[in-house]
Design a binder for these strands. Structure first.
Lengths: 205, 205
DNA sequence: GTCATTTTTAACCAAATGGTTAACAAAGAT
DNA sequence: ATCTTTGTTAACCATTTGGTTAAAAATGAC
């Protein structure tokens, strides 16, 4: 069995490098030279593969957004009961993001910089989360009396906030609470179960 | 009574302009020329008041951080009972941020870009939030049996996440949930009471 | 092997950008 | 009024940065 440590193709090296630099520095802060250096290639070669910075950025951004949004929809649109959806959302989402802890801040930041660019590019691709069904489901449970009266919008915000925010504020939490990388991961693993429990304890009648 | 529409001093104009541009574009994306234009002055005059971009940025960043962090401490270190603290935190914090909705993302983003710069500058000023007392207080309540067993760290994360995240994700929530400016504000006003209720319903025995 | 195509590089270029200079105007001070 | 200090400007400069060019390797077709 030959151990073929096959070189990643140049394009793959570029994409990995670009992702690292863009996520760290943002579109404005990223330097094409840094991306080339990180990929171990010449800057001209970068432009041979991707004609300009904006196009390269778009590839990275779409890939990042594509990792974060479609799965949400899949869960929100499924036919599971409410509590199961909440559990699934927390668990799956935290798993996804644990592998790319800096994606949410990156994406939110770029959305903030130019909401309409985002709307035009990502939102088009019908992968846009459609929360209506989930919101309606909450209202049904309220009507059935299985959960207390609560504004569906607020419940949705609570769920998403508790799940995502710790990643967005990761460096702050780490500095302020003195968590090392491992402790942070462990805490987030805990939260896969803690958040659903927290929510259900609050709303279940 | 003379209506003296006194011009803001040049320095004030610069600071207002710089805040707007930096918060919108971040340190890397902000252009000194844009700040000068926004302030209605010459670029040289900008350097007359602030010797370079970094120093100007630091003033803006510290002012922003100074708005967000000290009040937290004030609340967390007070001698109020736990539930009151939670209510006060949500209510006061949302009020503060409603006046500057983009500050949290700005600050988190810059912390992320260079956590140690942040640590060195802001964290020094002893306004650094010290959560120990708050965490201990939660443990006491658990011991007393007034609230159910819950990890203090998780509870703190939940509180902060639900309060701050909607601002960080404001453009996303607005696009996705179709909220206009006014509806967003109204929702956040609601949340001043909704979040504490949500938490207390979850943990109170 | 030879030729055509693809990949890679060093050197270069134009525009953008942070920052400076030197002169000019306004405002006090005497 | 004159002089000094402070505020403001247009023009300029050096560096950085995204992007290009033309030539050299490498790869593949025959």
């Amino acid at each position: 069995m030959t151990i073929v440590k096959k070189d990643k193709s140049t394009e793959e090296k570029i994409l990995a490098a670009a992702k690292k630099i863009f996520v760290q520095q943002g579109m404005a802060g990223a330097r094409m030279q840094d991306i080339a250096d990180e990929a171990g290639i010449n800057k001209a070669l970068l432009h041979y593969y991707f004609k300009n910075k904006e196009q390269l950025f778009e590839v990275i951004f779409m890939e990042a957004a594509g990792r974060l949004f479609p799965r949400i929809n899949e869960i929100f649109l499924s036919d599971q009961p409410l509590f199961e959806k909440i559990e699934r959302f927390c668990s799956e989402y935290i798993s996804i993001v644990l592998e790319n802890p800096y994606l949410p801040l990156f994406v939110l930041n770029e959305i903030n910089r130019d909401p309409d660019y985002f709307l035009g590019k990502v939102w088009k691709g019908r992968n846009v989360p459609k929360p209506e069904k989930f919101l309606a489901q909450i209202e049904q449970e309220v009507a059935k009396g299985t959960i207390r009266r609560i504004s569906p919008l607020n419940l949705l915000m609570n769920l998403i906030s508790m799940t995502i925010f710790p990643f967005v504020a990761k460096p702050m939490f780490q500095k302020n609470l003195g968590l090392d990388e491992w402790q942070f991961r462990a805490t987030m693993e805990q939260r896969k179960k803690e958040i659903p429990k927290f929510i259900i304890d609050s709303i279940k009648k």
